[in-house]
């Protein structure tokens, strides 16, 4: 099971240009507090003996987010030098949560399937608007502006907490449904100013005709075959769960996100080295808030975590080769491999 997960994530990482991460790279950040993070996960394992794993998985909500977090934990297990048996035990525990969230293609090789057939039937009975070039372009712009807001709220590495692409679901006759869910757009505990944002999230349901969609283990890594603008047969938009089809409202929302995405980026890139580390540590704990609290663990980073990152430069422990990195990442991620970044 984990071997396939590792293969899927290596495929996802393999297409990345590692020089593009801003304003920081987790490869330089996570190793600073790897032992402390693994200790927190072990505490979760211990406390989870008293709760239902189904209920616990629901606190994560987002399968793509959990895949990313499992990947980061696999890396931490190696940089922290955790023993092989313990690595396997921790990794399998996290993977068991993923199995409860994903209905099919658990490892996310080419899709992110979370709904049952009957759930999709229920969605398709709701009201959808007819697609058009104008609507397709506007939805693409709305996606772009909200995507960049999420980037500033959660950096490149916790993006999945703000965006999850779900699907594709085959509707027959060359039609598919793809769900683009934006959530946690006003994380007040992380960024106080977001309390004034008009919504916490929105969802775009797109029905495409003669368009193929795929994503990898990271659901924002989307690919289309065919034209998603011309091929948009119908769509539905919900803002905080309420149906909103007026293009004028969506235009206003897009303009708001365009403005806020730039402001948020200016804010996060203006943080100095120490502030950025503290904020990103807070971020990593925040995206597990509901999960930790369900287990009776306070979500805030503990003193050991803050101490671990204090006055430290970015780590340089990861040194993948410039070309053909897949083998390197496979060895890093696979808990069975006695390979330790150094």
């Amino acid at each position: 099971m984990l071997t396939k997960f590792v293969e899927s994530y290596v495929q996802a990482i393999g297409d990345m240009d590692m020089t593009t991460f801003e304003p920081l790279s987790l490869f330089g950040f996570h190793p600073m507090f790897d032992k402390e993070w693994i200790a927190r996960i072990e505490k979760c394992m211990e406390y989870s003996k008293h709760v239902s794993m189904d209920d616990l998985a629901k606190k994560i909500k987002n399968a793509s987010h959990l895949r990313a977090q499992l990947c980061f934990i696999l890396m931490d297990l190696k940089t922290a030098g955790i023993a092989p048996e313990k690595r396997k035990k921790i990794a399998e525990w996290v993977y068991s949560l993923l199995e409860k969230l994903a209905k099919k293609d658990v490892n996310g090789f080419k899709s992110n399937i979370k709904h049952t057939h009957s759930e999709i039937e229920k969605i398709m009975k709701k009201k959808f608007e007819k697609g058009s070039i104008e609507a397709g372009k506007l939805l693409g712009r709305l996606y772009t502006s909200a995507y960049h807001l999420v980037n500033g709220l959660y950096t490149d590495f916790y993006t999945d907490w703000g965006i999850e692409n779900i699907g594709p679901y085959d509707l027959g006759d060359g039609r598919i449904l793809v769900i683009k869910k934006f959530a946690n757009l006003n994380p007040k505990l992380l960024w106080a100013h977001t309390k004034d944002f008009p919504c916490s999230g929105f969802t775009i349901y797109s029905v495409y005709k003669d368009v193929k969609f795929s994503c990898d283990a990271i659901s924002v890594h989307t690919q289309y075959e065919g034209d998603p603008i011309k091929g948009l047969e119908s769509f539905r938009v919900e803002i905080d769960g309420k149906e909103t089809h007026q293009l004028g409202v969506l235009k206003v929302l897009n303009e708001f996100f365009e403005k806020k995405s730039a402001e948020q980026w200016d804010l996060i890139t203006s943080l100095d080295h120490e502030e950025l580390k503290k904020k990103t540590l807070l971020m990593r704990c925040f995206i597990f808030k509901d999960f930790f609290e369900h287990l009776g663990i306070h979500w805030i980073p503990n003193k050991e975590m803050f101490d671990a990152i204090k006055d430290k430069p970015w780590s340089t422990i990861y040194n993948p080769p410039k070309k053909d990195q897949n083998e390197y990442w496979r060895n890093v991620l696979d808990p069975k491999e006695e390979f330790y970044p150094s």
Binding site: D15, Y224, K230
Partner: peptide, 17 residues
């Protein structure tokens, strides 16, 4: 100048067509 198949400009360009 830089970027890969899954970089930000690549992703959003595909969404905007």
């Amino acid at each position: 100048n830089i970027g890969g198949l899954t970089s930000h400009p690549s992703i959003v360009s595909r969404e905007m067509g």
